[in-house]
Computed example of a mutant assay.
Amino acid sequence: MLAIEALKLALEKENGSIALYKKLTNAHPEIADLLSDLLNEEYKHKKKIEEKISELTKD
C-alpha cells in the first residue's frame, strides 16, 4: 500500500468517526460536551491528513 492510499484510508476512518460522534451527540445530549471534544480532535486529525495528502500530491 502506498502512503497516499494509507492516508486516504485514514481520512475515510476520520470521516466515519466524525459522523458517529455527531450521531451520538444527537442521541445522547447528556454527554454532548465530551462528544464535542472528541469531534474537535477528529477534525484536527482530518485536517492533518488532508494537509499531508495535499503535500504528497503536489506537482
Rank of each mutant, 00 (worst) to 15 (best):
K47I: 09
A27T: 11
I53E: 05
N40V: 10
L34W: 13
K58A: 04
E41H: 10
L38K: 09
D59F: 04
K13F: 11
M1A: 08
D33N: 15
M1T: 01
E30I: 12
K23N: 10
D37V: 15
S17H: 12
E5F: 00
T57W: 00
L39G: 05
I18R: 08
D33E: 15
H28M: 13
E14F: 02
D59K: 12
T25A: 14
L56H: 02
K48P: 04
L11Y: 09
E14A: 04
E5Q: 06
Y21G: 10
K52C: 05
K22Y: 01
E30N: 08
K22W: 00
P29W: 05
K23S: 03
A19S: 14
L7H: 03
D33V: 15
E42L: 07
L9Q: 15
T25F: 14
K46R: 15
L11S: 08
L39C: 11
N40H: 15
E5G: 07
N40Q: 13
K8V: 02
E50L: 08
H45P: 01
E50P: 02
K48T: 11
A3N: 05
I53Y: 02
L24Y: 12
K47F: 13
P29D: 02
I4R: 06
P29M: 05
S17D: 07
K22A: 00
N26F: 09
N26V: 05
L2T: 10
E55A: 08
L2S: 02
I18L: 05
E12S: 11
K47W: 03
L39Q: 03
S36Q: 15
N26R: 09
K46G: 04
S36G: 15
A6F: 05
E42V: 05
K44S: 03
T57D: 00
K52E: 12
K52M: 06
I53Q: 04
E14Y: 03
Y21R: 07
A32D: 10
K8Q: 08
S54Q: 08
I49Y: 02
K22G: 01
G16I: 01
A10E: 14
A6W: 11
H28Q: 13
